[in-house]
Amino acid sequence: MVYTWQYYDLVLAGILASMVLGVGVGYLTTISLTLSVIGAGFVAVAIIGHGLFVNGPVDEPGDLTGEVEALN
């Protein structure tokens, strides 16, 4: 079985990459660790926002009107 990358796999990888890059910048440059992690956090929030609102997990707006079944 061959695994194919999906959009949300890339979203998760982008979040991880931005945070790791923020820590790397904080340790390897003169920019403070706190500032670089906060900046990376804003990038991660932008990636999450794109995944939720620009390219959401529904195919069409009609998918949002269906009732949710109770968890058993």
Rank of each mutant, 00 (worst) to 15 (best):
M1T: 13
V2E: 14
V2D: 14
Y3W: 15
Y3H: 15
T4S: 15
T4N: 15
W5H: 06
W5I: 13
W5Y: 14
Q6R: 10
Q6Y: 09
Y7M: 13
Y8G: 03
Y8W: 07
Y8A: 06
L10Y: 14
L10S: 14
L10E: 13
L12F: 06
A13C: 02
A13P: 01
A13R: 05
I15R: 01
I15F: 09
L16Y: 11
L16R: 11
A17F: 14
A17G: 05
S18M: 05
S18F: 05
V20P: 01
V20M: 15
L21Q: 01
G22K: 04
G22H: 04
V23T: 10
G24Q: 07
G24I: 06
G24L: 12
V25D: 01
V25T: 00
V25G: 01
V25I: 06
L28W: 03
L28M: 06
T29G: 03
T29N: 04
T29R: 03
T30C: 05
T30L: 08
I31A: 00
S32A: 03
L33T: 12
L33W: 04
T34H: 09
T34V: 09
L35Y: 12
L35F: 10
L35M: 11
L35R: 14
V37K: 07
V37T: 09
G39C: 09
G41V: 05
F42P: 01
V43T: 12
V43C: 08
V45Y: 04
V45G: 05
A46L: 06
A46G: 10
I47S: 05
I47P: 00
I47Q: 02
I48W: 12
I48Y: 11
G49F: 03
G49M: 06
G49K: 08
H50A: 13
H50D: 12
G51W: 05
G51D: 08
L52R: 10
F53H: 12
F53S: 02
F53Q: 06
V54D: 15
V54L: 15
N55G: 10
G56I: 04
G56H: 13
G56K: 13
V58G: 13
V58L: 12
E60M: 09
E60Y: 09
P61W: 08
P61F: 04
D63N: 14
L64I: 10
L64E: 12
L64G: 03
T65F: 10
T65G: 10
G66V: 10
V68C: 01
V68H: 03
V68N: 01
V68L: 03
E69G: 13
E69I: 13
E69N: 14
E69K: 13
E69W: 07
A70N: 07
A70W: 08
L71Q: 02
L71F: 13
N72G: 03
N72P: 11
N72A: 09
N72R: 14
